[in-house]
């Protein structure tokens, strides 16, 4: 199956996957922070390369990103992306002390905390997906970068560039009401996993 074979019905199913995964992840984040965490309705979107950078509000927007690769029956990338100010807000809620401010950069401890949040979110998301589909999927250790949104999003885009000219993102927005912390959770399943996923959910049968 190719990315162009994803019709609106299949995209709806992928959106629902996002819903179940992200719902579980939001609960985990809420427990971690001891605060109510809300999420928007996930969206499965197929974007051309020229639209990719706009997914998060501009190619040059500085963002903090926790990235994990997913391997097993299901292959892809998971990214938890926040604007730098939102990442600061999240750290303020999680850490009882405030690290020294140094602009957009984060201290080692802060990076470690953000990675752990990404790790918990990704694991909850993937575990809900595994339970639902019966597919085996393992997230890698988390990796972290603070950089321009365009440069960060080029990582999944390049992977998709080998086979086509667009990328499928299953995007969910999280936000914590009172402190206005918002983040985006992106599941980017690789093309080879579409069949596997849709078959496991009974949307398509063996050809």
């Amino acid at each position: 199956m190719d990315i162009s074979d994803l019709d609106s019905q299949k995209l709806d199913v992928l959106t629902e996957i996002g819903n179940i995964g992200a719902g579980n992840a939001a609960t985990a984040l809420s427990k971690l922070l001891g605060k109510k965490v809300e999420m928007n309705v996930p969206k499965a979107e197929v974007l051309g390369f020229r639209e990719v950078a706009g997914l998060l509000g501009g190619a040059e927007l500085p963002v903090a990103c926790v990235l994990l690769s997913v391997d097993g029956d299901l292959k892809g990338i998971i990214m938890f992306i926040l604007e730098c100010s939102a990442a600061r807000g999240l750290l303020d809620m999680l850490l009882t002390f405030r690290c020294e401010e140094n602009g957009m950069l984060f201290t080692e401890l802060e990076v470690s905390a953000l990675k752990e949040i990404g790790n918990i979110l990704a694991s909850s998301y993937i575990s809900a997906l595994s339970t639902l589909t019966g597919l085996r999927a393992m997230p890698s250790v988390p990796d972290f970068a603070v950089d321009m949104a365009g440069a960060i999003l080029s990582v999944p885009a390049i992977e998709f560039g080998k086979t086509g000219d667009s990328v499928l993102f299953i995007k969910t927005e999280f936000f914590e009401g009172s402190n206005r912390v918002a983040g985006n959770f992106l599941l980017v399943p690789f093309v080879e996993s579409y069949n596997v996923l849709l078959k496991a959910l009974g949307v398509i049968t063996d050809e």
Binding site: A53, G58, A59, E60, D147, M148, A149, G150, A151, I152, L153, S154, V155, I158
Partner: peptide, 10 residues
């Protein structure tokens, strides 16, 4: 001027 934004591995 020709501009390109947010080059990563590209």
């Amino acid at each position: 001027v020709l501009v390109t934004l947010g080059l990563g591995s590209c």
